[in-house]
């Protein structure tokens, strides 16, 4: 039993290495003289300098940030409403929660295709910025909702009753009591919205129209064996560092609330 457990835990450590070693290798190649040979070679910053002067990735990056900000805002508002409302519902609670979580149960490319078909054929939405925002929201909202429900399902409604008895108006009750206590869930929802939208690819492929997001740009570059590839190493090394920083912030935040 103990040996088996050791073997299995070593295996899981191995899978974690499988996630991180390639990412570190990518970072190493981004400062290597001959990245396309497979081994890094000597140290150089020439690719980073080239990335700074190459403007191709700038517009996709701006689009991605704009979309991610919209998705984050939508996630925060929707998760706040549903997170407060769902625990107070009775019969409708379970079916509505399941409907909200449904996108987790459909593969990304299939969702992308069906949203494209539904938007284009039935709702008549043209593909572009807002179809991207909507499809990213569909992907990120279940995560945002879960992060919000973790906080709201533990919320002590007695606090609101006490505030009401002490003469607080509904607005005061919300802004001075409920909102500060729900803030970690709200920030978590926003971070999930931003980060999941920022790295979303399978749905974007179908609903992007003429807009190129950063993951679409990365994908196009990674699929072709062009001389631009070393720049993608640099770009993605920088993105990974930013993602890690954001994840650390999120863990710190959620860790504080669940304690």
């Amino acid at each position: 039993m103990a040996t088996l457990r050791f073997v299995l835990l070593s295996g899981s450590a191995g899978i974690l290495l499988l996630i991180y070693v390639p990412v570190l290798w990518l970072a190493l190649l981004s400062v290597g003289a001959e990245p396309l040979s497979g081994l890094p070679g000597g140290f150089t910053t020439v690719w980073y300098l080239a990335l700074a002067s190459n403007r191709n990735w700038v517009q996709p990056a701006i689009s991605s940030i704009e979309i991610a900000l919209c998705v984050a805002l939508l996630c925060m508002l929707a998760a706040l409403a549903a997170g407060r409302g769902l625990p107070r519902m009775r019969r409708a609670r379970v079916p509505i929660t399941l409907a909200f979580l449904l996108p987790l149960g459909i593969p990304g490319t299939v969702t992308g295709l069906m949203l494209f078909a539904g938007y284009r054929f039935v709702l008549g939405i043209h593909m572009g910025f807002w179809s991207l925002v909507l499809s990213h929201f569909v992907w990120a909202f279940p995560f945002a909702l879960i992060s919000m429900l973790v906080v709201t399902s533990r919320f002590d409604h007695g606090l609101l009753d006490a505030a009401a008895d002490l003469g607080a108006s509904p607005r005061q009750r919300f802004w001075q009591i409920e909102c500060p206590l729900l803030m970690p869930g709200l920030v978590g929802a926003g971070l999930f919205g931003f980060l999941l939208s920022f790295t979303e690819l399978p749905r974007s492929i179908f609903v992007s129209g003429a807009i190129q997001t950063l993951p679409l740009f990365n994908w196009a570059e990674a699929s072709t064996q062009s001389s631009q590839v070393p720049l993608i190493f640099c770009l993605n090394t920088l993105l990974t560092v930013l993602s890690t920083a954001a994840s650390v912030a999120m863990i710190g935040l959620l860790g504080r609330t669940t304690r």
């Binding site: 974690l16 996630i19 991180y20 070693v21 390639p22 990412v23 290798w25 990518l26 190649l29 990245p35 040979s37 497979g38 081994l39 980060l195 999941l196 920022f198 790295t199 690819l201 950063l214 993951p215 990365n218 994908w219 570059e221 990674a222 590839v229 993608i232 190493f233 993605n236 993105l239 990974t240 993602s243 890690t244 954001a246 994840s247 650390v248 999120m250 863990i251 860790g255």
Partner: peptide, 29 residues
């Protein structure tokens, strides 16, 4: 371990695939 399990949610899929392709290629590490 928590950090290791959170960061992967937010990594770019193409970057990961590309990195792994370099690792496994004929001339790779």
């Amino acid at each position: 371990v928590w950090l290791c399990l959170t960061v992967p949610f937010f990594l770019d899929p193409s970057a990961r695939g590309l990195a792994l392709r370099l690792m496994l290629s004929a001339g790779g590490p």
